[in-house]
Design a protein around this nucleic acid. Structure first.
Lengths: 116, 116
DNA sequence: TTCACCTGTAAGACGTTTCTTACAGGTGAA
DNA sequence: TTCACCTGTAAGAAACGTCTTACAGGTGAA
């Protein structure tokens, strides 16, 4: 399982990914089994490009993973499934995560750049 | 404790409130003890109006509570403290919360209005 | 009165997020 | 070839979140 506590920065990304009703629905659907993008979009009732965007955000947060597979009739299908993340959120766990926050620290200047 | 699972809508609000590095810092500070707005702003190193905005968002999510008190020398001080929230986030708990989501359901139309 | 604190809120700039529409490419089957 | 699927991405509108500056009000003490 994904049982290690995330860093502060990772936590922000995960929370931002979950803080959206549509993305919560996507996670909920995938919790019931893996699925490919087009079918998932029809299922939920949103456009495929929109779903694509939300899935990218969820994947960047490590909450879902996608894998491009070939179906039996040779078509490319991108399947997504949930990872078995689990987050505990209390004032204490937040305080712990903040110790590893590198972003938006008014003392040390905001948002350090990624290594290019 | 605040041990009941939030509705889907409440969950979105809580997650959105926590999905910000500055607000995580605020929660972390308050986890170490209650404080009033002006001192907290100096402590964290941000402007008071900005902190005010963030505290409102946290309070709306039920993560902190504020109380206006009179200090010994008669000045009005707004003290904030964390509530003892605790959230468990897994694919299953998300799926459970989504059952009570009223917002952004493409089937039933988006965002029902509040009762005026 | 003036100063040093405390509170609140409004206006506007700016960047990000969310969403639609439109395009470009692939496959197998009719 | 045309159709019905699958994939991806880009451009632009609209809404939202973040942040600064500026204002308006309160208190007690010098």
């Amino acid at each position: 399982m994904t049982g290690v506590a995330p860093t502060g920065d990772e936590l922000v990304v995960m929370l931002a990914a979950l803080a959206n009703p549509l993305r919560l629905r996507i996670v909920a659907r995938l919790a019931g089994g893996r699925d490919y993008v087009s079918r998932l979009a029809r299922d939920i009732g949103i456009s495929r490009p929109l779903l694509h965007m939300h899935l990218q955000r969820l994947e960047a947060a490590g909450l879902v993973v996608g894998s491009l597979e070939l179906s039996e009739d040779g078509k490319a299908m991108k399947y997504y499934e949930v990872t078995d993340f689990h987050l505990r959120l209390t004032a204490s766990t937040v305080a712990e995560a903040v110790r590893t926050l590198t972003r938006s620290d008014p003392e040390k200047g905001p948002a350090p750049k990624e290594q290019p």
